[in-house]
Structure formats: structure tokens, C-alpha cells
Simulated scan of single mutants.
Amino acid sequence: MLAAAACSSTEEPTGVWDTPIVTAVADPNELTPALGNYQFKAGNLLGEIGLPQFRQISARGHSTCGVRIDGALACAGENAVAGEHPLVPASYLPGEFLEIASGGDYACGLLTDGTLRCGGFNGFRQSEPPSGVYTRVTASGGHACALTIEGTAVCWGHNEWAQSEPPAGTYTHIAAGGGFTCALTPTSTAVCWGHNEWGQSDAPDEMYTYVSAGGQHACALTAKSAAVCWGNNEYGQSDAPTGSYTHITAGDFHSCALTPANTAVCWGYNEDGQASPPAGVYSEIAAGYLHTCALTVDHELACWGVMEEPTDMPFDYEPAGFERLFR
């Protein structure tokens, strides 16, 4: 569920919000308790229970959002509301979207006219996107970024580690992580900035076609379709297996990729099964904190792992720049 900004009422919402965009600034220490959290088991194809088909998905933290075939949004987890099904219509972000980026407790979307619309927790003004026309949007924790039609990067929100200060230049792809950001230049090199305690902003010198920024690590696909990861590797999340891949995603402590046969491969932290993908044929994959979601070739959604706050955390960790709804 998207967390509401601080307001005079202490009553918790009981259903779908009708406020389209949250614009007030909330105290990061005063967060609305989350509703509508769901646990997914491996092999649970949500499309089989009558949910709409999707054309794009995004996972971050304990949440996943998707753009439906009709361009509307649906979300589950921290930025979803209580509902009958795991993914419910995100009426707080109305419009027809091309892309959605889940930031965990907020989300930003790219509308069909190229403008941005964000909603949810706004303690760092991450839900206040700049005006303009854009081609790509990405969100993570307390900050978000987008690419203009000219290819320049624009970021907003939390900036403690300068993660919202992109270097001058033009880019073809951008990915926001936990307190850091990475982007690809027109020459296919990776440039990262922001938090760098684990080397997550030190991208290896290589030619890349895609990059994904996670909690404390990043992963990318090389021009030869190999997977390369860097940054924190406490749970093996940066030990990408050898092979050829068509898509890659970096979560908080695990990573996943799709093979040329459209099967899913995951590695890293797996206490809740988030790195154990069910058999299937997928077209897109997105890793969150303790869960992973993927789109089947039929545009149905498959999720595995847990999309809720665990009662017994295996480690004391708060992603850089990320304020959880769960306390």
C-alpha cells in the first residue's frame, strides 16, 4: 500500500484510496501502517485466479506494481491496498501508463503522453516528479529518476549520498538503487553515483546493454549477453552464474535473470524462496526484497517468495535511503 502523507486524521484507510497523488511532505518517522500484504508461494500463477494481464512489472522492497494491458495500474504489498486479490487496482494513480516503477512505499509511472505521475510516501519528496516529457522512469526507496526525450537524467527525492545528482551527459537507460543510481551512456558504458560503501557505484569497465540497481548491488548484461554484478555480495547476490541472458534484475539481497529459453535463474539470499523460481516461460522478471515476480509469455503474473515483513529478520538491515512502512 502506498503510505499516506501525515494528516490530521489518525483513522487508517479501509479501502482503495481516491486521492490521485500525494503532494504533502510527511515526517519519515510517522508512517501509516500498511494494509493488504500478501504471501506468495512458488508456482502461484496469479493469472489463474482471474487477474488481468500485464505488459510491464516493477518490484521494490515488499511491493510489486504492474501496467495492465489496458494501461491501468495494479499493485500489491506496501503500495497496495487491502483487497480480495494480491494485485488490486491502483486508483490513487489514475491514467493510462506506459511504465511503472515501484519504489517500495511509493510508485512513479510514465503516462502515455510522456509525463510522470507519482503517489505514496513522500517524506523525501520522491512522489513529486518534475514536469516535462520523459522516456523512462525508475524508483527506489527515497529517490526516483527519469530520462528526458533528449537523454538527460533527472532525479528527485532523497539525496543524502548525492544519488539524486546525475552527472552531466546523455543516457540510454537508468536504474535507481538503494541510495545510488546507475545509467548507461550512448557508448554502452555504465556510470553510477551515490552511496558506495559496498562498491555498488563502481561499475566494472565493460560494454552493457541493460543495468538494474538493487539494494546494495547492481547487475547488468554485457554486449555478449553475460551477467555481471557488483557491490555487496554477502549472500552471493553478486555472484552471477555464467551463461547467456536476455534480462536481469537486482533485488535487495538476491538477483534473477532470464535465459534465451525464457526460463528464470536466481541467486543470492533465498530464505523465503525468493531465489527459487518456479518452472515456466517468462518475458520479464523483477526482484524485490523477499519476493520475485515475473511475467509469463501470456502476460500473466507469477510471484514467489514472501511479500510481507518477516517476523524474524535474519539480519539488521535498512536499505540506504529507504524508510519502511513496517516498524
Results as ranks from 00 to 15, higher is better:
9 S>W: 08
53 Q>W: 06
269 Y>R: 13
54 F>M: 12
154 V>D: 04
92 Y>Q: 02
198 W>V: 07
54 F>Y: 13
160 E>Y: 14
298 D>L: 10
36 G>W: 00
71 G>Q: 06
133 V>N: 04
291 H>G: 03
284 E>T: 07
217 H>D: 01
223 A>C: 10
147 L>W: 06
202 D>K: 14
69 I>R: 15
176 A>M: 02
194 G>V: 04
62 H>M: 05
151 G>F: 00
67 V>R: 02
174 I>A: 04
264 A>Y: 13
212 S>V: 01
130 P>A: 09
252 D>Y: 14
260 P>D: 11
303 C>F: 15
303 C>P: 00
315 F>I: 13
229 C>E: 03
39 Q>T: 07
303 C>L: 14
243 G>D: 07
98 L>M: 15
147 L>R: 01
244 S>P: 14
141 G>W: 10
90 A>S: 07
104 G>H: 03
253 F>W: 05
184 L>E: 01
2 L>T: 09
13 P>H: 08
103 G>V: 03
267 W>N: 07
70 D>P: 15
170 T>H: 09
55 R>S: 08
275 A>K: 00
235 Y>W: 14
93 L>N: 06
245 Y>L: 09
249 T>P: 05
292 T>N: 11
48 E>M: 07
111 L>R: 11
186 P>K: 09
23 T>H: 11
170 T>C: 04
22 V>Y: 10
323 E>V: 06
76 A>S: 12
50 G>R: 07
262 N>P: 06
268 G>F: 00
158 H>D: 01
43 G>I: 12
61 G>Y: 03
4 A>K: 08
151 G>Y: 05
187 T>V: 12
172 T>C: 05
316 D>F: 04
212 S>H: 08
169 G>I: 04
170 T>M: 05
63 S>M: 15
152 T>G: 03
260 P>H: 14
119 G>A: 13
149 I>G: 01
142 G>N: 07
120 G>N: 06
36 G>Q: 01
246 T>I: 13
155 C>K: 03
210 Y>T: 06
49 I>T: 11
316 D>C: 08
45 L>W: 00
293 C>F: 03
14 T>V: 13
75 C>F: 00
164 S>A: 14
281 V>R: 11
181 T>F: 14
61 G>L: 07
29 N>M: 10
72 A>Q: 10
324 R>E: 09
318 E>N: 10
85 H>A: 11
150 E>Y: 04
182 C>N: 02
319 P>G: 05
10 T>Y: 15
